[in-house]
Amino acid sequence: MRVIQFREAIREAMNEEMRRDENVFLMGEEVAEYNGAYKVSQGMLDEFGPNRVYDTPIAELGFAGLGVGAGMNGLRPIIEFMTFNFSLVAIDQIINSSAKMLAMSGGQYSVPIVFRGPTGSAGQLGATHSSNFENWFANTPGLKVVVPSTPYDAKGLLKASIRDNDPVIFMESEMMYNDKGEVPEGEYLLPIGVADIKRKGKDVTIISFGKAMKIALEAAEELAKDGIEAEVIDLRTVRPIDYATCLESVKKTNRCVVVEEANPLAAISSELTYHIQRNAFDYLDAPVIRVNSMDIPLSFSAPYIEATLPNVKRTLEAVKQVMYKK
């Protein structure tokens, strides 16, 4: 099968949907003439012209709100944040406007919008450019939150997100844009809200999503060397969450570790742990353990990062703990 980069998969999804539906447009900082801060939108201005691909000033609140209004009035905006770290200045429009519009208007006005861009850390960028917001947005009724980990998932899920009639937060990573993976030539869509078992196993369940999936899969590879078969579940979507797939796996393995880049309090890992204890209590042979970023901002220097972010070592320790192995 054809192999392409993560950024190319995202671009293909946008190109295909923009060719299919003229109400879809792309707007964001540097998306047009600069061809994207991370070259995700490369060539799109050339193909679609300035009436479909819009550069904006650095005014996230303004252009996010523009997108919400355009969505209410019949268009399907794709609003790119250079990173979701900058979405905080636009969060009123995302939460108070886009997520609540349908309910608040008694079903009269929907907002079929996609807010997309990278989330989380991306090297030594300092605290303001290194936060994860997946759990923040997942906490908001009215939104859907998609966090893919592979080019294949990214393309199918982004196409589904653009066609979705509800507002979708679609989160990528600067550190995944170069990743390569198999993506078929033909059109396909993937359903929002369905997890994917990325590796089969029977001894322990590791649940993760987005960039942290790399840690989960690398840990599983290491564990296999010791004869431990980890089942690795990629949530792909954190609102809604596919609890059923997680529970089914945990009922089989009886042990679970959650790997997530966000800070720990009120994280997706907390949510999963609640559901697993609530619905699979009798199946558990050990408490669920999570591997999150430490409960601190992400500082600049490499040793701080090493001490803060989740990694393979901490994941292996967590797995050994739930398996009562030294």
Binding site: G62, A64, G65, G69, N73, D92, Q93
Partner: peptide
């Protein structure tokens, strides 16, 4: 198209509504 409760939030939305036209 509303009645909006956050002071000023309707202004970018109004811009977007006009943008769509």
């Amino acid at each position: 198209m509303g009645g909006h409760g956050i002071v000023g939030a309707q202004v970018p939305m109004g811009l977007g509504i006009g943008f769509a036209e």
